[in-house]
């Protein structure tokens, strides 16, 4: 029992962080119709910014760490907003291929910028002293930080669902996703919705990166690795479905954690095996009932 519970908890925590990352991809795709390859770049920027803000001599307090994480997410979001206005706004009307390539270009630039500032060698982001130990839950010894990640990510996720399903903005976003021409006839504020939604997605990616940072080796290839993972999740869950993304993120997180524990040889491509199996059985993704659907649900 013990040997299952730990990977389950680790899987839950990484799955929820993955959800924060992947939700941005789903929103951009479902609402703006954009396949954003640069999204992994935002994750990477969040991770490295948090690293920059929290590393240094002396001990790291929890409050300081928290502020660093939040600041990293905010900085990433700011960069995202600027890019949205400058670059992405010009891509909304073009073909998916060009968007893909433009965003790939951005990914390369982000990687280049990171290499310029921090080099290619792996870095380690520190955990604050207060969160670095383990806590005993019954007979189980669970790393504190994983529990913190679960808590924070869960709260943020709930907040995201609230925004999508309970706010005026979310309603307009869902309307656009469902029927673009009708939405424009209804006078929905496209530019505002796009800008806010995009920035929100980037904020979440940056936050995920910042929180993941102490758990992973930081290298510029993070951007690329996580964008691939993000897309795999989005496809598994069903393109455009936020709920599907959540389910898929948890499936991927838990699968990865179990693979690492029990079958480390295949842990590198456990996710992709899941992707292949899912696509064979449900061609549109888990939550699309067999037929490919592109709307936000």
């Amino acid at each position: 029992m013990n040997s299952v519970a730990l990977p389950a908890i680790v899987g839950l925590s990484s799955g929820l962080l993955l959800f924060l990352l992947a939700s941005g991809l789903t929103l951009t795709f479902g609402v703006m119709g954009i396949v954003n390859f640069a999204h992994g770049g935002f994750f990477m920027i969040g991770a490295y910014t948090a690293f920059e803000l929290t590393s240094g001599d002396g001990g790291l307090g929890v409050a300081q760490f928290a502020m660093g994480v939040v600041a990293a997410a905010v900085v990433t979001a700011a960069i995202g907003l600027v890019l949205e206005r400058l670059v992405f706004a010009r891509l909304y009307a073009t073909s998916p291929i060009y968007t893909l390539l433009a965003t790939y270009a951005l990914l390369l630039m982000a990687q280049g910028a990171v290499v310029m500032k921090w080099g290619r060698l792996p870095q380690s982001a520190p955990l604050p002293d207060g969160l670095s130990g383990s806590v005993d839950l019954g007979s189980l010894s669970v790393p504190v930080y994983n529990l913190v990640c679960i808590a924070v990510a869960a709260v943020v996720a709930v907040g995201l669902f609230a925004v999508v399903y309970r706010t005026r903005l979310g309603l307009e976003a869902r309307a656009i996703a469902m029927d673009r021409s009708m939405a424009s006839a209804l006078g929905i504020r496209f530019r505002l919705v796009y800008a806010v939604l995009f920035t929100l997605g980037v904020f979440l990616a940056g936050l995920a990166g910042a929180m993941q940072a102490p758990l992973t080796q930081l290298t510029p290839s993070l951007a690329h690795a996580y964008v691939v993972m993000g897309f795999a999740i989005v496809v598994i869950g069903g393109l455009g479905s936020v709920t599907g993304t959540l389910v898929a993120s948890l499936v991927v997180g838990v699968t990865n954690a179990f693979a690492v524990s029990f079958a480390p040889d295949i842990s590198g491509y456990a996710v992709y095996a899941v992707l292949v199996v899912v696509l064979v059985v449900w061609p549109g993704g888990l939550l699309s009932r067999g037929a490919p659907v592109v709307d936000l649900h």
Binding site: V35, V228, L239, G268, Y269, L275, G285
Partner: peptide, 28 residues
């Protein structure tokens, strides 16, 4: 064969994932 089964974007991501898997395999 997946072309017969799966829409375009999903197929593209699938090829991406398979490529990545092969990369990991080759290194490992």
């Amino acid at each position: 064969l997946f072309i017969f089964r799966v829409p375009g974007l999903s197929f593209a991501i699938l090829t991406l994932a398979l490529g990545e898997s092969l990369f990991v395999l080759a290194r490992r």
